[in-house]
Protein backbone atom coordinates (compact mmCIF):
# COMPACT_ATOMS: atom_id res chain seq x y z
CA UNK A 1 0.00 0.00 0.00
CA UNK A 2 1.33 3.40 -0.90
CA UNK A 3 -1.01 6.37 -0.79
CA UNK A 4 -0.04 9.99 -1.39
CA UNK A 5 -2.88 12.42 -0.80
CA UNK A 6 -3.38 16.14 -1.12
CA UNK A 7 -6.13 17.66 1.02
CA UNK A 8 -6.84 21.21 -0.12
CA UNK A 9 -9.38 23.98 0.41
CA UNK A 10 -9.92 27.44 1.87
CA UNK A 11 -8.15 28.21 5.12
CA UNK A 12 -10.74 27.38 7.77
CA UNK A 13 -12.35 24.48 5.92
CA UNK A 14 -10.40 22.05 8.07
CA UNK A 15 -8.26 20.38 5.43
CA UNK A 16 -5.21 20.27 7.68
CA UNK A 17 -7.27 18.47 10.32
CA UNK A 18 -8.63 15.74 8.05
CA UNK A 19 -5.13 15.22 6.68
CA UNK A 20 -3.85 14.85 10.22
CA UNK A 21 -6.58 12.37 11.08
CA UNK A 22 -5.63 10.14 8.15
CA UNK A 23 -1.96 10.41 9.13
CA UNK A 24 -2.66 9.60 12.75
CA UNK A 25 -4.93 6.69 11.83
CA UNK A 26 -2.28 5.36 9.47
CA UNK A 27 0.24 5.46 12.30
CA UNK A 28 -2.15 3.65 14.64
CA UNK A 29 -2.67 0.97 12.00
CA UNK A 30 1.08 0.47 11.77
CA UNK A 31 1.77 2.19 8.47
CA UNK A 32 4.59 4.63 7.76
CA UNK A 33 3.18 8.14 7.55
CA UNK A 34 4.05 11.79 7.03
CA UNK A 35 2.02 15.00 7.01
CA UNK A 36 3.24 18.22 5.42
CA UNK A 37 1.16 21.39 5.60
CA UNK A 38 1.24 24.54 3.56
CA UNK A 39 1.82 27.43 5.92
CA UNK A 40 2.41 31.15 6.14
CA UNK A 41 0.41 34.08 4.79
CA UNK A 42 -1.40 31.88 2.27
CA UNK A 43 -3.08 30.20 5.26
CA UNK A 44 -4.81 33.43 6.18
CA UNK A 45 -7.91 33.48 4.03
CA UNK A 46 -6.25 31.88 1.05
CA UNK A 47 -5.94 28.24 0.16
CA UNK A 48 -4.54 25.72 2.57
CA UNK A 49 -3.37 22.24 1.83
CA UNK A 50 -1.57 19.34 3.35
CA UNK A 51 0.25 16.49 1.77
CA UNK A 52 -0.06 13.10 3.40
CA UNK A 53 1.80 9.88 2.73
CA UNK A 54 0.55 6.57 4.14
CA UNK A 55 2.68 3.64 3.08
CA UNK A 56 3.77 0.13 3.93
CA UNK A 57 7.28 1.24 2.90
CA UNK A 58 9.48 3.80 4.61
CA UNK A 59 8.33 7.28 3.53
CA UNK A 60 11.10 8.78 1.47
CA UNK A 61 9.83 12.15 0.24
CA UNK A 62 7.21 13.77 2.48
CA UNK A 63 6.49 16.18 -0.35
CA UNK A 64 3.74 14.93 -2.60
CA UNK A 65 4.10 15.96 -6.21
CA UNK A 66 2.22 13.10 -7.88
CA UNK A 67 -0.67 12.33 -5.55
CA UNK A 68 -2.65 9.12 -5.80
CA UNK A 69 -5.63 11.04 -4.40
CA UNK A 70 -6.84 14.62 -4.17
CA UNK A 71 -9.55 15.92 -1.89
CA UNK A 72 -10.44 19.43 -3.06
CA UNK A 73 -12.91 21.45 -1.02
CA UNK A 74 -12.87 24.59 -3.19
CA UNK A 75 -12.33 25.52 -6.80
CA UNK A 76 -8.87 27.12 -6.60
CA UNK A 77 -7.60 23.92 -4.97
CA UNK A 78 -9.15 21.71 -7.60
CA UNK A 79 -7.74 23.88 -10.38
CA UNK A 80 -4.29 23.82 -8.83
CA UNK A 81 -3.95 20.18 -7.86
CA UNK A 82 -6.14 18.22 -10.32
CA UNK A 83 -3.38 18.14 -12.97
CA UNK A 84 -0.96 16.68 -10.37
CA UNK A 85 -3.00 13.52 -9.72
CA UNK A 86 -1.48 10.28 -10.96
CA UNK A 87 -3.19 8.48 -13.82
CA UNK A 88 -5.64 6.00 -12.32
CA UNK A 89 -5.81 8.12 -9.18
CA UNK A 90 -8.77 9.59 -7.37
CA UNK A 91 -10.22 13.10 -7.20
CA UNK A 92 -12.92 13.91 -4.67
CA UNK A 93 -14.28 17.42 -4.99
CA UNK A 94 -16.77 19.49 -3.06
CA UNK A 95 -19.62 19.84 -5.56
CA UNK A 96 -21.39 22.33 -3.26
CA UNK A 97 -18.76 24.91 -4.14
CA UNK A 98 -17.42 23.62 -7.43
CA UNK A 99 -19.81 23.67 -10.39
CA UNK A 100 -17.77 21.92 -13.05
CA UNK A 101 -15.92 18.63 -12.55
CA UNK A 102 -12.19 18.49 -13.29
CA UNK A 103 -11.34 17.84 -16.94
CA UNK A 104 -9.54 14.58 -16.27
CA UNK A 105 -10.69 11.33 -17.85
CA UNK A 106 -7.80 9.18 -16.69
CA UNK A 107 -8.70 9.34 -13.00
CA UNK A 108 -11.74 8.43 -10.95
CA UNK A 109 -13.77 11.46 -9.98
CA UNK A 110 -16.26 11.63 -7.15
CA UNK A 111 -18.47 14.66 -6.52
CA UNK A 112 -19.46 15.13 -2.88
CA UNK A 113 -21.91 17.91 -1.97
CA UNK A 114 -20.06 18.35 1.31
CA UNK A 115 -21.48 21.74 2.32
CA UNK A 116 -25.07 20.74 1.66
CA UNK A 117 -24.73 17.55 3.66
CA UNK A 118 -23.01 19.41 6.48
CA UNK A 119 -25.79 21.98 6.51
CA UNK A 120 -28.37 19.20 6.66
CA UNK A 121 -26.53 17.87 9.70
CA UNK A 122 -26.71 21.35 11.16
CA UNK A 123 -23.08 22.50 11.08
CA UNK A 124 -21.26 23.77 8.02
CA UNK A 125 -17.92 23.24 9.76
CA UNK A 126 -18.15 19.46 9.31
CA UNK A 127 -18.14 19.59 5.50
CA UNK A 128 -14.51 18.40 5.70
CA UNK A 129 -15.64 15.26 7.54
CA UNK A 130 -18.19 14.46 4.84
CA UNK A 131 -15.44 14.61 2.23
CA UNK A 132 -13.15 12.57 4.48
CA UNK A 133 -15.84 9.87 4.85
CA UNK A 134 -16.15 9.62 1.09
CA UNK A 135 -12.37 9.39 0.77
CA UNK A 136 -12.05 6.66 3.41
CA UNK A 137 -14.76 4.57 1.79
CA UNK A 138 -13.19 4.95 -1.64
CA UNK A 139 -9.51 4.59 -0.84
CA UNK A 140 -9.75 2.25 2.19
CA UNK A 141 -6.38 3.64 3.19
CA UNK A 142 -7.37 3.52 6.86
CA UNK A 143 -10.56 2.41 8.57
CA UNK A 144 -13.22 4.82 9.74
CA UNK A 145 -13.00 3.41 13.27
CA UNK A 146 -9.32 4.19 13.46
CA UNK A 147 -10.02 7.73 12.27
CA UNK A 148 -12.52 8.13 15.12
CA UNK A 149 -9.90 6.78 17.49
CA UNK A 150 -7.41 9.28 16.08
CA UNK A 151 -9.95 12.06 16.52
CA UNK A 152 -9.98 11.41 20.26
CA UNK A 153 -6.22 11.90 20.32
CA UNK A 154 -6.02 14.87 17.96
CA UNK A 155 -8.91 16.93 19.29
CA UNK A 156 -8.47 18.59 22.66
CA UNK A 157 -10.65 17.13 25.44
CA UNK A 158 -13.02 20.11 25.44
CA UNK A 159 -13.89 19.42 21.81
CA UNK A 160 -14.72 15.74 22.30
CA UNK A 161 -18.42 16.60 22.45
CA UNK A 162 -18.13 17.21 18.70
CA UNK A 163 -17.11 13.63 17.97
CA UNK A 164 -20.66 12.21 17.57
CA UNK A 165 -21.49 14.89 15.00
CA UNK A 166 -18.24 14.19 13.18
CA UNK A 167 -19.06 10.50 13.20
CA UNK A 168 -22.41 11.29 11.52
CA UNK A 169 -20.68 13.40 8.90
CA UNK A 170 -18.16 10.64 8.17
CA UNK A 171 -21.03 8.17 7.84
CA UNK A 172 -22.83 10.39 5.32
CA UNK A 173 -19.65 10.68 3.30
CA UNK A 174 -19.18 6.93 3.33
CA UNK A 175 -22.79 6.53 2.19
CA UNK A 176 -22.32 8.91 -0.75
CA UNK A 177 -19.22 6.99 -1.78
CA UNK A 178 -20.90 3.60 -1.64
CA UNK A 179 -23.83 4.79 -3.77
CA UNK A 180 -21.27 6.03 -6.27
CA UNK A 181 -19.35 2.77 -6.04
CA UNK A 182 -22.37 0.60 -6.76
CA UNK A 183 -23.25 2.86 -9.70
CA UNK A 184 -19.75 3.10 -11.12
CA UNK A 185 -18.56 -0.40 -10.38
CA UNK A 186 -16.38 -1.66 -13.16
CA UNK A 187 -14.89 1.76 -13.60
CA UNK A 188 -12.72 1.13 -10.60
CA UNK A 189 -9.38 -0.15 -11.73
CA UNK A 190 -5.73 0.04 -11.04
CA UNK A 191 -6.15 0.61 -7.29
CA UNK A 192 -3.72 -1.05 -4.97
Amino acid sequence: MHEEVVFAGFGGQGVLLIGQLVTYAGMIEGANVSWMPSYGPEMRGGTANCQVVVSSKEVSSPLVTEPTSLIALNKPSLDKFAPWVKRGGLIIYNSSLIQSPPGRTDVRVLAVPANEVANELGDLRIANMVALGAYLATSRVVSCDTVLDAMKRVLPERRHNLIPLNRQALARGIEIASVWHSRDRGDVSGRQ
Partner: peptide, 10 residues
Protein backbone atom coordinates in the same frame (compact mmCIF):
# COMPACT_ATOMS: atom_id res chain seq x y z
CA UNK B 1 14.62 23.60 7.16
CA UNK B 2 11.05 24.79 6.98
CA UNK B 3 9.80 21.49 5.60
CA UNK B 4 11.31 19.43 8.42
CA UNK B 5 10.05 21.94 10.96
CA UNK B 6 6.49 21.98 9.67
CA UNK B 7 5.94 18.33 8.81
CA UNK B 8 4.50 15.69 11.13
CA UNK B 9 5.83 12.18 11.45
CA UNK B 10 5.62 9.52 14.13
Amino acid sequence: DAILGQMMEP
